[in-house]
Amino acid sequence: MIIVTGATGVLNGATVEQLLQRVSPSDIGVSVRDPRRAQHLADRGVRVRQGSYDDPDALRDSFADAEQVLLVSSSDLSADVVAQHRAAIDAGIDVGTKRILYTSSHGAGVDTPYPPLAIHAATEQHLAASGAAWTALRNGFYGDLDQLLGPWRETGVIAKPADGPFSWVDRRDAAEAAAAILTSDAQPDGPVDLTLTTPITLADFAAAASDLSGRPVERVAVDDNGWIAGEIANGVPEQVARFTLSMFQATRSGHFSHPDPSLSRLLGREPRSIAEQLADQSAQRG
């Protein structure tokens, strides 16, 4: 059985949908904090059990019979996230899981200005020491394009701190790749980078946005301190602004600049381009 955590979230929810196209629902289980939110999966024959990274007993119950467990990285910013990840890995080991997979990040490492990369590195270290077979899905960045780019539709400007090359992947592609690995007879051991074959910059986003909107969209690099001051003036807590700035600083230092063909190979096609992602977002906005 394949057990998926975070299945009521966007990423691993999409992974479960991909798995349902590949294997029987009876071969899939989900471990979720609130089973009521996964009723739509239970109705389709997926095993739904309550589990939380803060409750090892519940995790072990929700992981029972698992041959593979896919762990989503914790989004609880108030918690000791590395400890949560370790507890989830240990629960998988306790029930005899053969392979543990984890949604890590491209560029994971301890020598980085972007704090989540050290968290992912520590989690991968615990996986490596666990004794189980493991795979770290080092996804490129994904998420809300409005948060990344700002109100470019209204302003005609992408005004953010200076950046460097990085990968922005569609969560649907990341989910499809995860499902392909989970159902493969030859699974990668250790980290696998799931990124674009050609990294992009915010200038590339500006060019794609210009083509999509039919009017010029300018990329403006804002001084770090000036950007922080502007974010605070707009009501963003300083700690949050500095956290976001650290991502741009990490792109500038080359932490996300390395391309990899693995995502394309797993998909059997090129990942969705940033132009396609922008177009999809515009269609969703109506």
Rank of each mutant, 00 (worst) to 15 (best):
N234S: 06
S184Y: 00
S24M: 09
L148M: 15
Q249C: 01
P191H: 02
D144C: 09
G254H: 14
L71S: 08
D280M: 14
I158Y: 06
I158C: 02
M1D: 05
A241M: 01
T198F: 08
P115Y: 11
P191T: 07
A179P: 09
D43A: 15
T244G: 04
A250H: 01
R47D: 10
D173E: 09
V16Y: 00
G13Y: 01
S62I: 15
L145I: 11
A180W: 09
H255R: 10
P35C: 14
R60S: 03
H255D: 05
A221F: 12
I3R: 03
G9N: 00
D65Q: 12
S31Y: 09
D185N: 13
E231V: 03
A174D: 07
A174R: 03
F256R: 02
G268M: 11
W134D: 00
D61G: 02
F63Q: 02
T198Q: 10
A133K: 12
H258W: 10
W227N: 02
K98W: 12
V30L: 08
V32M: 00
S130M: 04
A279E: 06
I3W: 03
V169E: 01
D65S: 12
I119R: 05
R60Q: 07
I119A: 08
H126A: 15
V192H: 07
R37L: 12
D144T: 13
A159K: 02
I158H: 03
D204S: 03
A58Q: 10
V157T: 04
A175I: 09
M247I: 05
Q284G: 07
L278H: 07
S130I: 06
A206Q: 05
L212S: 02
L117F: 03
T97V: 15
Q68H: 04
H258Q: 12
A122F: 11
L145Q: 13
P113E: 09
P259D: 12
A129L: 06
S74M: 11
E238D: 14
R138I: 06
A42Q: 12
L266I: 14
G140R: 02
R37A: 14
I232L: 11
I158A: 00
A66T: 07
T251G: 01
Q39C: 08
A177V: 03
T195G: 04
A207V: 08
A221N: 14
P115Q: 08
D65P: 03
T183P: 05
E176M: 11
A7W: 13
R215Y: 13
D65I: 07
I274A: 04
K160Y: 05
D43N: 14
V4Y: 09
H85P: 05
G51M: 05
R86D: 13
V32C: 03
E231D: 04
A136G: 11
I2P: 02
L101C: 12
V16K: 01
S253K: 06
W227A: 01
R171G: 02
A132H: 05
I232Y: 05
V23C: 07
E270C: 06
T123H: 01
R33T: 15
